[in-house]
Design a protein around this nucleic acid. Sequence first.
DNA 1: CCGAGCTGTGGTAACGCTACCAGACCTTTC
DNA 2: GAAAGGTCTGGTAGCGTTACCACAGCTCGG
Lengths: 339, 339
Amino acid sequence: MRRRRSTHETVRIQDVARHAGVSPMTVSRALRQPDKVSEAMRRRVEEAVSAIGYLPNRIAGSLSSSRSNVVALIVPSLRNSLFANTVQGISDVLHAAGHHLMIADSGYSLADEEAAIAAMLQQRVCALVLHNTRHTARATSLMKRAGVPVVEIGTLTPDAFDINISYSNHDAAKAMTLHLARLGYRRIGLVTLPLADNDRSIERRAGYLSALGELGLAPDPRLMLELPGGIGSGAEAVARLAQGDPRLDAIFFAGDVLAIGAVLECQRRGWPVPGRLAIASFDDVDILRYMRPAVTSVRIPRSEIGRRSAEILLERVGGRAAAPVTVDLGFEIVQREST
Amino acid sequence: MRRRRSTHETVRIQDVARHAGVSPMTVSRALRQPDKVSEAMRRRVEEAVSAIGYLPNRIAGSLSSSRSNVVALIVPSLRNSLFANTVQGISDVLHAAGHHLMIADSGYSLADEEAAIAAMLQQRVCALVLHNTRHTARATSLMKRAGVPVVEIGTLTPDAFDINISYSNHDAAKAMTLHLARLGYRRIGLVTLPLADNDRSIERRAGYLSALGELGLAPDPRLMLELPGGIGSGAEAVARLAQGDPRLDAIFFAGDVLAIGAVLECQRRGWPVPGRLAIASFDDVDILRYMRPAVTSVRIPRSEIGRRSAEILLERVGGRAAAPVTVDLGFEIVQREST
DNA sequence: CCGAGCTGTGGTAACGCTACCAGACCTTTC
DNA sequence: GAAAGGTCTGGTAGCGTTACCACAGCTCGG
């Protein structure tokens, strides 16, 4: 039977074979395992390939070999530039190994994450990288059944599904809170992103509370705020927290670019930072170092997380050991002028 | 012949068919064209699917139907958050249509872009989105032969390959330069990202020069700088340009976050902005609006570019008209305190 | 100088799905 | 009441590649 849906006639491996006067099998080998064919053959095939402009069909290859060279990455949002470093790290390593990256976002929703996981598994990706560590039951079951390696990178968790490469959001937030206390601040506010479906935010708040407990300070709801990301939110947080408790002496912004907005808001109000209010941030984005005052922050090895994830995945896909792995890449408190 | 490479036995459409007591063809139809089967059949198949946990294999589907639901996107860098909005825009629209996104970066190199294009075409993506408008000869030939729709989104160009959805970098840079002149500035510096392999930077400089010509101002090499992106570069630019020409009264930063660094550097030096030096930026990132002084900028419809690209691609993939298309989504000068 | 052990090549049968056609069954029409 | 048409289902033959085996030709040791 003949069927032709496209007007473009594709060049198949069969065509290369005919042109070179060999079998398709030999062409396939010459391209994928050059050391398995004679030198002369390799050259002959290469010439035929470029003569007729052959581009191997990886769809067919994947189907036949049951091996894919595509890794799926699912992040809460593509807009967030924090993930950008991780994405670049993953991409760099994958690219060097001849693999590719398929990206989807879950929009900070577990239901959407489940849908994305299902979609990616339908594409038969060879591995999954997830930013979340919480998943719906069906998502977990899907992944289990698919049997592909899964890396979770958003935070360290004791209940990792398979491979877990990250840092502890809990410990990082706790460390920063303790750091602020050590500097003498006592009324420390906390601003997080929305907690719903977001294990990182939840962990960070837990870390903050744990630090307060250790310090013998009572948590105060008036000092804790949950706001969507964005610079505007940072400004808003300053207003609301300061009004809620006039003795407020520091705010720890545990997410996104909130702290930037806060510093700018203080400038606008003429409040000296840290004289009137100390400000600390999470995720050491470039600009914090350049601001005036330069902003204290927790530095997360975003890029390294991406690179290591890809490396470990590639090992797994390559058929190496299949034991669960946890890698703690740590964090670092960067003390600057704002605290 | 039996072959089993994975230890995970996959569930095939055949299994669903057996379980539901129908033919594989009917299962296939029930899943993809529910209106082509009876209501009772649809339900029966759905039950079988969830009973045995069937996840369609899109690899096999694509091979069989010669149709892919994956779109490739190639950007210069994944790190740059400017692209993030575009990526999100594309992703949103594709997702709603059941398509997926494969992403690669060219590292600002035409050679790498060519390699990425080849790799994506091997994956038999159904369409290509490129940020560049310049390509190697082989890249162009590859795309021509592949016959898939291609959208270029980096800038408007008269030599678009196929579909071109963007804004004019030339006109935007020219407009901002004229705007600065209209405000009274006469010694206007220009800072761009490296010009090599970067058509956007080249266009922006051309636009700047064109504006100077129209104004009867002579271009001065001491006023033009080419720097890598980053906040640090912005600070460096202030130092170098001011030293090169003490009469410098404005700088147009035609790329990235350079302007932010410049404003912060002026704060550090105690230079009033715009009193001592006016500063204008390209790409209206959130923070510019919140800075003190708020920074004048060119606003580019990044997200809209992504959305429209995806929409037009989907139309094409769906089999609609195949005429080259150009869409100018324009830009906007946002005047603020810094100029 | 013959069989064992390489190396290099080719033939065949999948991989899991869908396009296409055929045909069973039911409704409509004159 | 039979032909014409519609709706629904199934069988067959690929899609373009690769895994597996077979085997030809050659080298080498006893």
